[in-house]
C-alpha cells in the first residue's frame, strides 16, 4: 500500500478519529488535576488486583536478588553500624542533656498542643512504589471510601511524608517531599528563616530534598531542623520535615539553598497516616 493511498483511505480517517478521542481523554484527565478523573479511577480500581499480585511477586523477586547481589554491601553496612553503636554507647553519657534539649524543642514547637487537634486516618499500609518514579511516590491501601482527601498531608510518627495526589475508591497515590511536583512552605526552627522545600531529581537520587529561597546571608547550618510553616492552610504548623545536611548559594547568586534529609526514612515505609483535619486547615496565615 503506498502512502498516498493510505492517507486517502478509511483507515487513516479512523486513525485520526482515535487520536482525536485519545487527545480529548488526555486533556480532560490533565484538566482534572490529581488524575482523579472518572476514567483513571475506573482503570485504577479495575487493575488493583493485578497491581497487588504484581507488587507481591516483584517484591519477592527483588528481595531474593537483593540477598545475592548486595551481600557485600550489607556486610559493610553491618560493620559500619557496629561502629556506630559503639560510638552511640559512648555518647550515652550525654543522654540526659539530649533529653532536656529535646523537651525544650518540643515545648518550643508546641507539638502537643498542635497535634491534639489532628484528625488522622486509620493507619494506611504502603502497597507499592509507583512504577518508574524515582521520587519515592507510592500507593496506599485506603482511598476515598475510607475518607481520604485529595491534597491531604501524609505523615508518620517522625514527620511529613508527602501529600495525597491521586484518589481511587480503595487506594490513593502519595507524592513524597522528594518530588519536584510538591512545594511545601517551611521554617528553619533554629533561625526562624522561611523557605520552600521543593524536590529535585538530583537530590532525590540520594534520598534528599531541597530547601530553596533562603536569604543569601542565611544563618542556616548543617543539622538545623526544618518544620512546616503552616502558612498556606494545607499543612499544620510544626510538622518535622527534615534536617539540613548541606548549604550553598544558588548559581544565580541571589538566594541560598540547603539540602534536607527527610525526618522520615522514605525508602523503608510500611505504614503511614493521612492528616484529615487540623486547626487552621484551609486558612492561609500571614
Amino acid at each position: 500500500m503506498n502512502l498516498r493511498a493510505f492517507f486517502r483511505s478509511t483507515k487513516f480517517r479512523v486513525l485520526l478519529c482515535v487520536l482525536a478521542l485519545l487527545t480529548g481523554v488526555m486533556l480532560y484527565s490533565v484538566r482534572q488535576g490529581g488524575q482523579t478523573d472518572v476514567f483513571s479511577r475506573a482503570l485504577q480500581t479495575a487493575t488493583q488486583p493485578v497491581r497487588r499480585f504484581s507488587s507481591a511477586i516483584s517484591g519477592s523477586v527483588n528481595r531474593t536478588l537483593d540477598t545475592y547481589f548486595k551481600s557485600k554491601a550489607y556486610r559493610d553496612e553491618n560493620a559500619r553500624l557496629r561502629d556506630r553503636v559503639a560510638e552511640l554507647n559512648g555518647q550515652l553519657i550525654g543522654y540526659d542533656d539530649a533529653v532536656q534539649e529535646r523537651d525544650a524543642l518540643r515545648d518550643q514547637l508546641k507539638i502537643k498542643e498542635h497535634s491534639a487537634d489532628f484528625v488522622l486516618s486509620e493507619p494506611c499500609r504502603v502497597l507499592m512504589p509507583v512504577t518508574n518514579d524515582m521520587t519515592g511516590s507510592f500507593r496506599i491501601d485506603r482511598g476515598e471510601a475510607d475518607g481520604i482527601l485529595l491534597n491531604a498531608p501524609v505523615m508518620d510518627s517522625h514527620g511529613l511524608v508527602g501529600v495525597v495526589t491521586e484518589l481511587a475508591a480503595d487506594s490513593a497515590t502519595v507524592t513524597t517531599i522528594l518530588s519536584p511536583e510538591l512545594s511545601v512552605g517551611v521554617t528553619v526552627l533554629e533561625t526562624g528563616e522561611d523557605g520552600i522545600v521543593e524536590g529535585n531529581l538530583k537530590y532525590a537520587a540520594d534520598g534528599q530534598t531541597k530547601l530553596i529561597y533562603l536569604d543569601k546571608n542565611s544563618k542556616v547550618r548543617e543539622g538545623n531542623l526544618v518544620i512546616t510553616a503552616g502558612t498556606t492552610g494545607l499543612f499544620p504548623y510544626g510538622l518535622p520535615v527534615g534536617n539540613i545536611t548541606e548549604t550553598g548559594i544558588e548559581e544565580s547568586g541571589l538566594t541560598a539553598y540547603a539540602a534536607v534529609t527527610p525526618s522520615v526514612d522514605l525508602s523503608s515505609l510500611s505504614s503511614v497516616s493521612v492528616l484529615l483535619d487540623f486547626n487552621g486547615r484551609g486558612v492561609a496565615r500571614p
Binding site: 485519545l22 487527545t23 484527565s29 488524575q35 483513571s40 482503570l43 487493575t47 509507583v130 511516590s137
Partner: peptide, 15 residues
C-alpha cells in the same frame, strides 16, 4: 494506568 501518567498520553504514542 501503571505509571500514573495522564490517561491517554501513552495511548496516543502507541497508536
Amino acid at each position: 494506568t501503571a505509571c500514573f501518567s495522564p490517561l491517554g498520553s501513552n495511548a496516543i504514542y502507541l497508536v
